[in-house]
Design a protein around this nucleic acid. Structure first.
Lengths: 220, 220
DNA sequence: ATCAGGCTTAAGGCAGACTTAAGGATGGCA
DNA sequence: TGCCATCCTTAAGTCTGCCTTAAGCCTGAT
């Protein structure tokens, strides 16, 4: 899950980035409206954490221009402690949620999970497919009731696949969900993780579509 | 816009009902889990405002049983002022949003608008013809409900044909869809792929128009 | 009957995927 | 701080399935 943080305060920004990473997200960060606009035009994120007060303008303007170009990426606004007016304005501009400062990192993560889930048209957090269960809030995977130990990368890949069961995802798409800008990968890492996933989950689950990518297959 | 309010406190309940009515919603109200469950099974609402603390149980249980029966109606939770744990649990159970008490009526309305807007609209572009189904997002082809394994080229050819059922496409046109500029082909590759397609999909589907090209035939 | 276009089949090459292993990074723990 | 376990990336080698090519056969049209 790829998140963009727009926040000028360095302490908050880094805190968010690390906190979200612990919760299993991949977070990139920028610190101004201008940067945010530039980046958003070229990259897709699963969600946005957007501060309202930025050095070169209001986060609302970023939000507004996103919505004007039909970018429906879910947005979580960060507002002042009691800015009710801001919040209402934000929601009506097209924000999906807000959080007053100071905030709890776990709560940010939970709200992001809810946003992403809702954007995907799902109402349940727990993903299920065949005899697999994946619980994002606990970062837990079960296979037929038995817990399976997955590393972070393995978990992330399975998460992406289970979010779109049946759909083919290219290695490129998977990489984009796993890696931020500073950590682009130049190898067959995804293939290797897929290999490990298969050996842990059993065969017949993750199908290869040659030349295209991977998907969770329809049947045994 | 039809809203169901689940709230045991009479003052709050009536306040919400009136407030939402002013904002243009039509609100119904019940005051217990039991009533809520009964009503929800028989009526569809555009959204739900759900208190967590109810006389006969937790709103979370109402929420959970809704989601279990695949009721995806958007839910706005009402929680205690600082019940962070409740909120996280709520979101992860499948709530779409929450609001801490005390709340601002305008804000409730704004959040409901946002929820309902989010819940609407999503579509897919699946091609269908006779008993064939081709789903571009899944790169998946079904024949009478049974998935068919096609290679990349085969899939591409079928895709082009199904995009224009009944229309005759020349080998030249098909090649143009399959190959980039650098990789022109000097052989009967298309014929070979058509052959494989016919053997996988069964006869009578892809017609040859001698000297012209191929098409999906009109009838059996 | 002839011929051009289409069909069928098989083989070879190759790109993409799999497997395995090693080395480095990271984080926990003493 | 230093050690250990775990995980991640890289890279090299192997494997596999797809695609193209080509050759010969079939079929419909003239």
């Amino acid at each position: 899950m790829r998140i963009l943080i727009v926040e000028d305060d360095a302490v908050l920004r880094d805190g968010l980035k690390v906190g979200l990473a612990i919760s299993g997200f991949t977070a990139d960060a920028v610190e101004s409206c201008e940067e945010a606009n530039a980046v958003l035009k070229n990259h897709a994120f699963d969600a946005l954490v957007l501060d309202l007060m930025l050095p070169d303008g209001s986060g609302l303007d970023v939000l507004k221009s996103m919505r004007e170009r039909r970018d429906d990426t879910p947005v979580l606004l960060l507002t002042a402690r009691d800015g009710v007016a801001d919040r209402i304005a934000g929601l009506d501009t097209g924000a999906d949620d807000y959080l007053g400062k100071p905030f709890d990192l776990d709560e940010v993560a939970a709200r992001l999970r809810a946003l992403v889930r809702r954007a995907g048209g799902r109402s349940r957090t727990v993903l299920e497919w065949r005899h697999l269960r994946l619980d994002p809030s606990a970062q837990l995977v079960e296979r037929g009731g038995e817990p399976v130990r997955l590393s972070r990368r393995e978990y992330s890949i399975l998460h992406v696949l289970m979010a779109h069961p049946g759909r083919v995802l290219s290695k490129r798409q998977i990489e984009e969900k796993l890696y931020g800008w500073q950590e682009e990968v130049e190898s067959n890492a995804v293939e290797v993780h897929i290999h490990h996933l298969r050996s842990k989950l059993g065969p017949g689950l993750i199908e290869t579509v040659r030349g295209i990518g991977y998907r969770l297959g329809e049947e045994a």
